[in-house]
């Protein structure tokens, strides 16, 4: 699996643009800041499980960018995010404090929801479809305008309770 990922990452490295990396940073920043409005906001070092499929190019590319962004610890306020790649086909919850669901996984991403709920691990994604389908609780978009979409049922199921000041400023479904 890791060999396949490396192959995809090597190809992706040629294609990846600095702008895309910057976008990952911005997306992570938005996600981290949004999580600070949880009633039980994560603090300190948090391991982010980057859920991806190695042979799914868009997913693998996003996973690579996210991994790179967090490799040396991604700081947002008191939060420090550290990456852990999680193959969608070999899901794990061990040590993970937050899932970041990569884009383009389609219906297969539904496999994450039961794990996220049973272990009360929040899930964030840039793939709004996954939020609509209830597979991930929070969707974020950083550009051109910060947008945050929360699936209330999925959020409740994973123990995500946001402050009211935050709730009235985002889009819920």
């Amino acid at each position: 699996m890791r060999r396949a990922l490396r192959a995809v990452l090597a190809a992706g490295a040629l294609l990846a643009l600095p702008a895309a990396a910057q976008q990952s940073d911005t997306t992570l920043l938005v996600a981290a800041r949004a999580l600070s409005f949880l009633q039980h906001a994560p603090q300190g070092e948090v391991v982010v499980g980057i859920v991806y499929q190695p042979r799914n190019v868009p997913s693998a590319l996003e996973a690579r960018r996210l991994y790179d962004a967090m490799e040396n610890g991604f700081r947002a306020g008191t939060l420090v995010l550290r990456p852990q790649l999680v193959d969608l086909d070999q899901l794990t919850a061990g040590g993970i404090g937050l899932y970041f669901l990569t884009a383009g996984l389609g219906p297969a991403a539904a496999a994450l929801a039961p794990l996220s709920r049973s272990h009360q691990i929040p899930c964030v994604t840039t793939d709004i479809t996954q939020v609509r389908d209830g597979n991930c609780a929070m969707g974020v978009r950083a550009l051109p305008r910060v947008e945050i979409l929360v699936n209330r049922a999925a959020a409740t199921a994973t123990g995500m309770v946001f402050s009211e000041a935050f709730r009235v400023m985002i889009t819920e479904m």
């Binding site: 800041r33 949004a34 305008r145 000041a165 935050f166 400023m169």
Partner: peptide
């Protein structure tokens, strides 16, 4: 908690206000 204007502004990348409707926006 009182409204943390700075944190919300950092998150949404634009000023936040409660002077339009009484609700943070």
């Amino acid at each position: 908690q009182s409204i943390d204007y700075g944190a919300l502004e950092q998150l949404f990348q634009e000023p936040v206000t409660a002077s339009a409707t009484g609700s943070p926006q």
